[in-house]
Simulated assay, not measured.
Amino acid sequence: MAAQLTHAARKLWAACRRHPWMARAMASFIRPEPMPEAMKYTEWVLRALRGTDLRVHQVMHAHLMLIAYVQGLGMSMELEGHALQDTGVSNDEWMDRNGGRFAAIVSSGGYPVLATIFQHEPFELDLDSLFGFGLERLLDGIAVIIAETSG
């Protein structure tokens, strides 16, 4: 089950990477568009959860939570693309320009925990690594709910 959910989320993430507009296009959970391909994806994910002891609404919530997670990071990716298009400044260039200001604020003494994080090693935000880390935690949470309902 976890392998199928991981594959499903990574497949959706890859689609968002290829088509940055996609996260916005799948934005409505309350009023979804009736799209056969999206419904095939939903069916596939629900099938992965079918063999668990989750209640019906928990299965649907797990599916929607997985989509919302991918969508949230996908929206960040789209916003980054717009920022690059609007300013012509890459993420690395932006950090080079603003890194000193961040460092000055962090080293002011008002952010001791944040300061310790940056003292140990450079932190590079990579959406793919953030995606992988968050997906594992999300699936861990689903596994806990399955264990609780299994009794």
Score class of each variant (00 low, 15 high):
A3H: 13
A3V: 10
L5D: 02
H7C: 06
A8K: 00
R10D: 08
W13Y: 08
A14G: 05
C16Y: 09
M22W: 07
A25E: 04
M26A: 12
A27I: 02
A27M: 11
P32H: 13
E33R: 15
A38Q: 05
A38N: 09
A38C: 04
K40T: 05
Y41T: 00
Y41P: 00
E43A: 15
R47P: 02
L49Q: 05
L49K: 00
R50E: 12
R50N: 12
R55N: 11
Q58C: 09
M60Y: 10
M60W: 07
H63R: 10
L64N: 14
M65V: 03
I67R: 08
A68Q: 15
A68F: 01
Y69R: 07
V70T: 03
Q71M: 06
G74Q: 06
G74D: 03
L79C: 06
H82V: 11
H82A: 14
A83Q: 06
A83S: 06
G88S: 07
V89N: 01
V89K: 03
N91H: 11
W94C: 06
F102C: 13
F102K: 05
S108Y: 10
V113T: 09
H120Y: 05
E121L: 14
E121K: 15
E124P: 03
D126M: 01
S129W: 01
L130N: 03
E136S: 12
A143G: 13
A143W: 01
A143S: 13
V144R: 04
I145Y: 05
I146T: 09
T149K: 02
